[in-house]
Simulated assay, not measured.
Amino acid sequence: MNWNSPIPLQAQTLNSLPSIMESHEPLLSLKQYSPEIEVYPAYYREGLSGAIDDCLLRHGVAQRLKKAAELLPAGIRLVLLDGYRPIAVQQALYDRQRNHLLEQGWTESEEMYAELHRFVARPTVDPAKPPRHFTGGAVDLTLTGPNGWLNMGTPFDDFSERAATRYYEQKSDLQPDEQLIRDHRRLLYHVMNQVGFTNYSDEWWHFDFGNQAWAILTGNERACYGGVVPQASN
């Protein structure tokens, strides 16, 4: 596989959400399951309410992430920033981004909410349309090397046009540092795609497996991961 081949244009095929045939795979701690992957729980580090000091993923997602890590060139590692996201954390992120848009001068409108929902899903426990991260089938991640995290062009959760996965594929007359950013994005995209993940085209860091977003892009009639509501402890 040529890790430096261009990132392809993503077909937009959304008509309706596919149904979910829940697999009941458990959530796994990535810290325990795959120590070769660096786990950096970004929202816990930010102090976001409800976030935990770990990243949890469905078993099948964790397996594929481990395979992706094994495909990387020597000296390069995956950094997992977020995985399963409880509704309380989703709500906190939703409220934060909504307030940020209002502070930027947006007013309550369909246009504002369309912009909001590009980057943060509406918090809901509706079993027919769970947020991607609520299923345990979505990951946010980046790459690190011998000298620290690789330059990917924007920070995680930078909701600007430069965050689009193909931004540097479409930009003309790239400077040397921009070519490096493009190559880093290509590497991340291709190793994740190779093991079955799909990418959310507005966020270079976001990949899906098994959830409804993945089913749409891969042509599967059903998703295998629905929302995960933690069971109350006795």
Rank of each mutant, 00 (worst) to 15 (best):
S5I: 13
P6C: 05
P6W: 10
M21P: 00
S23N: 14
Q32A: 11
Q32I: 15
Q32H: 09
Y33G: 02
I37N: 15
E38Y: 14
V39F: 04
A42C: 08
G47Y: 10
G47C: 08
L56D: 01
G60A: 11
A62E: 14
A62W: 11
R64N: 05
E70F: 00
A74C: 00
G75L: 02
L78K: 13
V89R: 00
Q90K: 01
Q90L: 06
D95T: 09
D95Q: 13
Q97S: 00
L102R: 12
Q104T: 12
T107R: 09
S109T: 08
Y113G: 01
L116V: 04
R118S: 15
A121V: 03
D126G: 06
P127D: 07
A128T: 11
H133D: 12
F134K: 03
G137N: 06
G137K: 03
L141H: 00
L143M: 05
T144I: 07
G145R: 02
P146M: 06
G148R: 01
F156V: 05
D157I: 00
D158K: 08
F159E: 15
E161H: 09
A163G: 14
A163S: 10
Y167V: 13
Q170W: 09
S172T: 08
S172D: 13
L174P: 13
L187E: 05
L187F: 04
Y189K: 10
V195W: 07
S201T: 06
D202G: 15
D202C: 15
E203C: 09
E203I: 02
W204Y: 12
W205F: 09
H206G: 00
D208Q: 15
G210Y: 04
L217R: 14
E221G: 04
E221M: 02
R222C: 14
C224S: 08
Y225F: 11
G227A: 06
P230H: 00
Q231I: 13
A232T: 10
N234E: 03
N234V: 02
